[in-house]
Amino acid sequence: MRRGVSGFIREPRTITLIILVVISLAAISTLGIPQGLDLKGGSIIQIQLEKPVDSATMNTITSVLDKRLNIFGVKDVKVRASGNQNIIIEIAGVKPEEVAKIVGSPGKFEAKIDNKTVLTGADIVSVQSPIIRGNQWEVPFRISTDSAKRFAEAAEGKAGAPVDMYLDDRLITSPEISPDVAAGKPVTDVAITGAESTRESAELKAKEVETLLKSGSLPVKVKIVGVSSVSAELGGEFAKGALIAGLLAIIAIIIILVARYRTPILVLPIFFTTLAELILILGVAAIIRWNIDLAAIAGILAAIGTGVDDQIIITDEVLGEEKVKRRRRRFRIREAFFIIFASAGTLIAAMLPLAYVGFARGATGIGMLAGFAFTTVLGVLIGVFITRPVYAKFMEYIIK
């Protein structure tokens, strides 16, 4: 028996599995397992464009919104298109009202003299960090040299006249034209200023203006049509419930296996193989930063259930001909794998439409189907190509 176990451990497939499990455990411990909104809390904001757009314009819009949220300081955010007129934004750990103005604003900047536009957002080269003095705020920015010359030409001879600065057609500030600029001297350093009721409000407003100036304007108008939130406490309850469901599933599996085979030498390998599949799935999720939510947990349970079924098929096929010759035993294992591959192919074929609809349409409910489908397919592929062959090889050594 010891020779059989040592020979099994030296098998290339076994060594590969051990290495992958170690890598997965390292990825989980260092990178952590990304959690979806329904586990750690957060918000979902649904945005509608004023009209349908093509794929290039949609990519521009999602890129600008993603950039805005990152500049604003939102750490865990996911922006995805939903069709050709809607966008879904998932934000973890942030209240929706804190970012609603950021994602719902076109971000169009204009500076006007005598109601004539002399500067736009395209003229901005860089934006500096906001300056807060009490409840007063200031956002300095720099314009290009050509823009500064054009601005000086428009301001020539108009010392003391206001420069009306608009953001999304709302007047933000109206600084006066300095004598130097009115004399035709180009100035590249400009600033938007304002005042709020409190220092906290001033900081938030300055951050909003900085974010909009840095990210640029959206090519079409947008509006927020839906906001939903999941509290961190409720997410914790979901996670606790999912953990309990997983433990109950494991206990049920062990009871069924013990009742069927009545020997630890057959039950424990199935359990450890299932545990290895779970570690590999979570390891892949940690590496590719795939969020584990309730739908993904359901997919993991489905994949693990399929894996246990496959291992039972292998075990029964091998034990059914325990006394046959080696050639016949390998033939029965091939028969078992034919059934396993056929079952895996059928399951993957059933999951692909869900994944396609979820990724292509991207709506909130449909997106959960994509998470379920992706995790299920991932678990099945890991089982079919990694863990099931190792388990079959283990059964050969057990019979020998």
Rank of each mutant, 00 (worst) to 15 (best):
T120V: 05
V163C: 09
P162W: 05
K101L: 12
G134C: 01
I132M: 05
P162S: 04
G157D: 10
P130C: 06
I124N: 06
P130A: 00
I102M: 07
T120W: 05
R150T: 14
I177V: 03
Q136I: 12
P130K: 04
M165K: 12
E156K: 15
T120D: 06
P106V: 15
K158E: 12
A152G: 02
Y166K: 02
P175S: 02
V103L: 03
W137D: 03
V99R: 02
D114I: 14
I177C: 09
N135E: 09
D146E: 15
P175Y: 07
S174W: 10
W137H: 02
E138Y: 14
L167I: 11
G157N: 08
G157H: 00
K108A: 13
G121C: 03
I172P: 01
D168I: 08
V103P: 02
D164E: 14
V103R: 00
I143D: 08
Q136E: 12
T117P: 10
R170E: 15
S105H: 02
I143K: 01
N115G: 11
S144K: 00
Q136C: 00
V99Q: 05
I131G: 10
K116E: 09
I177M: 06
R133N: 15
P130Y: 01
V125E: 01
E110Y: 09
K101H: 13
S147R: 02
L171V: 04
A152N: 09
E176A: 15
V118I: 00
A161P: 09
Q128D: 15
A122Q: 13
K158Y: 09
E98H: 10
M165P: 13
D123S: 06
A161S: 13
V103C: 06
I143T: 08
V163Y: 06
G121T: 06
R142D: 14
K116A: 11
A155N: 04
D164R: 15
S174Q: 10
K112R: 11
P175W: 01
D146M: 13
D123I: 00
A122S: 14
E176V: 15
V125R: 08
T145V: 14
E98K: 12
K116I: 10
V99T: 08
Q128W: 13
D146L: 14
F109M: 07
F109Y: 08
V118L: 08
D146H: 13
S129V: 12
V139L: 00
I102P: 08
F141A: 05
R142K: 15
I113T: 04
G121Q: 07
K149A: 13
A154V: 07
K149S: 13
A100N: 12
S126W: 07
V118R: 03
E98C: 13
R150I: 13
I131Q: 12
A155H: 04
P140K: 02
N135L: 01
K101R: 14
A159C: 06
I172S: 00
K101G: 15
A154W: 04
V118E: 04
A148R: 06
A154G: 05
G134T: 02
N135D: 04
G134E: 01
A159R: 07
K112P: 11
A148Y: 07
A159K: 05
S105A: 10
L119C: 07
E156P: 12
L119D: 03
S147E: 10
I102V: 09
P140M: 04
